[in-house]
Design a protein around this nucleic acid. Structure first.
Lengths: 210, 210
DNA sequence: CCATTAAATGACTATTATTCATTTAATGGA
DNA sequence: TCCATTAAATGAATAATAGTCATTTAATGG
């Protein structure tokens, strides 16, 4: 019965179309200022239809991160060639993190808004939330693995890989938040990349076995 | 003309009263779920009156941070006894940062929501925004000064004090964001203090001259 | 051709932030 | 003491949207 399948495909496609339109609107307006009305109009659908595909405006918003996580994965994957030393891989990873931040700002923003809890958990269905969750954990795993390798190879000192990975993550997200803030307020030249390099050099150097 | 002055005092007191009530409401409901209606009722005022004192709900919210910054100052001041070594002062500062985070969560949350830009700049008057601004900079200055002292005393290696201070700030806020996230999602035991200590030890050790 | 079902619609409801014309009440001069 | 003036407060009305749901549309397959 090909009809059945076609229907499913159409639903998937419509969902994708909505996400694509929504992405544009969220980029130009942000979560709060974007309206379901506008998204519906641009998608040539009625408002009600959006709710057949997404539980709420917030769910539509965070659903975008699934595409983002895919990309993030690719960035990290490319950065972590197992042939390279743990140090080199770490540096690549930082580079990748930075590239993702600059090239996919909306996705990055969504990711951090989930992290910071500024989006009400109630407004998102469990299915979507769980998927996002899993993705965040997978991303963290990249870092954990590199550090683990560094320790095994005697390149890094014997630290807790998970704690260290979280520290890196925290440092990177913290740096971007701070430099964003400085930028917004024109508080002098805080070049985000320079700051990230500086900060992660501090941490990395400490990790390296003498 | 004592009347004139009394009026001014009364306005100041009313403003304070509103802030106090609002604090309780924001703590229990958060920014979004709190309503001006509820705050007005609890303050035994009409909704309209709130707008004579604050431009918007957001401005009422961020105005609370002014009290918070005061406290933050005190925490930092106590931590940075100039008699102590730069290393010791840094450790105290981290401790103070952590204490502030745990003991004054609402203030901390407001501070980071300003930092992260999740509050629309448009909804806040310039006067309030500028004040908050200045406070953030003063807090940063504490860290800058300690690092500067560390370098002067030969305790720390020769780094850019401002960049380093920002890195610490970024690390601390990043760590709290991450551990909050882990906590919320029950992703295993990520003790925030332990993580902060671990991460800042990594950075601090790197700073220390051999 | 029709009954059934899935999908889409958009008028309607509900919730709040914000405004503003009106009321209240204090002040100080006549 | 009374009144004009002014500041402060009020709350009904407005505006903007998220989200709902009874109704319509249109495809399907017997």
């Amino acid at each position: 019965m090909g009809t059945q399948q076609r229907k499913i495909n159409e639903k998937i496609k419509r969902r994708k179309d909505i996400l694509e339109v929504a992405k544009g609107v969220f980029i130009s307006k942000g979560l709060e200022a974007a309206t379901m009305e506008e998204i519906a109009n641009k998608a040539e659908l009625s408002k009600g239809t959006l709710y057949l595909y997404f539980k709420s405006k917030e769910e539509l918003y965070v659903s975008l991160v699934e595409e983002g996580a895919q990309l993030f994965h690719e960035f990290f994957k490319r950065a972590t060639n197992p042939v390279l030393s743990a140090t080199k891989q770490t540096l690549n990873l930082i580079e990748a993190f930075y590239s993702f931040y600059t090239e996919h700002r909306l996705y990055y923003t969504i990711l951090t808004s989930i992290q910071s809890g500024s989006i009400d958990r109630e407004k998102i269905s469990d299915a979507v939330y769980d998927r996002i969750h899993g993705m965040a954990m997978e991303l963290l795993e990249y870092i954990v693995n590199i550090i683990r390798k560094g320790i095994t190879d005697g390149e890094f000192i014997d630290v807790d890989p998970r704690e260290t990975a979280l520290s890196f993550w925290a440092l990177a997200t913290g740096v971007f938040a701070v430099s964003d803030f400085m930028q917004r307020n024109e508080l002098g030249e805080v070049k985000d990349k320079k700051l990230l390099d500086f900060a992660s050099d501090l941490m990395l150097a400490r990790l390296q076995a003498v």
